[in-house]
Simulated assay, not measured.
Amino acid sequence: MSVDGDARTALAQQLRQLRDSHWPDLRVTQAQLSAAFRVSVPLISSWESTHTIKIPPLQRLEKYAAFFATRRSLSNGTARVLPLSEMTPEEAAEHQRLLDELTRLRKAALRFQAAGETAEAAPAQDAFREGPLHFADREPITIICSQVPENDRLKIPYSSPETPDYIELYKYSDLDSLFELHGHLRAANPRSLVTLRAPEDLRSDDLTTHLVLLGGVDYNQVTASMLARIELPVRQVADWVSEKGPYFEVNEGDDTRRHYPVTGGSGDNLRLLEDVAFFYRGVNPDNVERTLTICNGMYARGVYGAVRALTDERFRSRNAAYLRRRFGTAESYSILTRVRIEGPVVVTPDWTLDSVRLHEWSEPTHGD
């Protein structure tokens, strides 16, 4: 497609055409897509508008491709998105064809989204806007970061509001991860409000935005609460008393496995050689039109590794592409991963390597 004004509307026109005439004898309504995608009808309408351009995120285009890949999306009078695992080879090929076309149109449209953005700058921006840390335009995002326990906080200089040099950020326990993630979210979602909260500072509307949780079940009560509400085969056990220490436990049928961090030395010479990190993405249980993302680890450097997997410019596109290939249109999925520590350095995990991934899980989208 040439770089001209048509690129602004081509994607919207294609989405409307899919709905109106993809199947000549069957017209799909916006209400049916709304039910299948679990989003509002006005949002579907905004993606089809050629007047006020609103470009859908890539994960929504994946749902479009899956929906229109098979007429079974409308079988039994219920609109739904079939998981890729249930598609025939012919349906899977049609899904890939549609996704390739919609992705191409989206990339062209993105070049015109921001005022003054040049065609040369667009490829760098695309890397931000195609991963799971990019959300629909102007939808609010809330980071809830784990916090240092109050008794430990009292030992940190300038952490008390009573001191003239009070630094509020000292109450957060995953500052490396927070610094990295906050900057990436702002860059990937320039039109969205990104709010930072500690669990002790939550407000009534925070939990119904796109939620991004940093930190484990011991220092982040919201992480503990959300994981307790989600049926996952992975559980974090903060056992800091026993000899082996804390671990992630995976339960699949009769098989139970524990994944421990790797340490060297003991006592004051204890060193972390490899942490275990957990990444989860699913529907926000308090607002089905928003998402829940969790970056977790047994130690702070595991949390940082989970974040860097999707922010490190050398790995974020590769890891995001792996998530799309592996989980397709799944609403909820997770990865348990190794995070290697080299001295003081956290090595970004490459999820395309089998040796890095400890466990993967996804929930089929049967209810869509």
Rank of each mutant, 00 (worst) to 15 (best):
R258W: 01
S334W: 02
W47N: 09
E48F: 03
L353P: 03
F68L: 09
V3S: 06
G245S: 08
S85P: 00
R38A: 08
V276L: 03
N76Y: 10
R258A: 07
L18K: 11
G282H: 07
F179Q: 15
V250P: 02
R235Q: 14
A277D: 11
P161G: 12
G267K: 04
E363T: 06
L82E: 01
N269K: 14
L84A: 13
S177M: 03
F179R: 14
G131H: 08
F67N: 04
K244A: 12
Q17Y: 00
T311I: 01
Y304D: 15
R257A: 13
S173Y: 01
G302S: 13
V276C: 08
S49A: 09
L33K: 03
S332Q: 14
S46A: 15
L110Y: 06
T329I: 07
P164N: 06
W351R: 00
L43H: 00
D254F: 05
R357E: 00
R71K: 14
A320G: 15
L99H: 10
A93K: 15
E243C: 00
A65I: 01
D25N: 13
A127R: 11
E120S: 13
K244D: 14
G215L: 08
E62S: 12
T293M: 13
L358E: 15
L102Q: 05
L193N: 11
D218R: 15
A121P: 04
A92G: 03
V250I: 06
G264H: 01
E91Q: 11
F112L: 11
L82F: 00
N319T: 06
R19H: 05
M298I: 15
Y219D: 10
S317P: 03
C145S: 15
T208K: 14
E120F: 08
A7Y: 02
L33W: 02
A136T: 03
Q32M: 13
V339S: 09
A330W: 06
A136Q: 12
P42V: 00
R357Y: 02
S34Q: 00
Y280V: 04
E274F: 01
T142E: 14
D25L: 10
Q59K: 07
R72W: 00
V250R: 13
E139G: 03
A127C: 08
F248G: 05
R16T: 10
V194S: 07
F112I: 02
A300G: 15
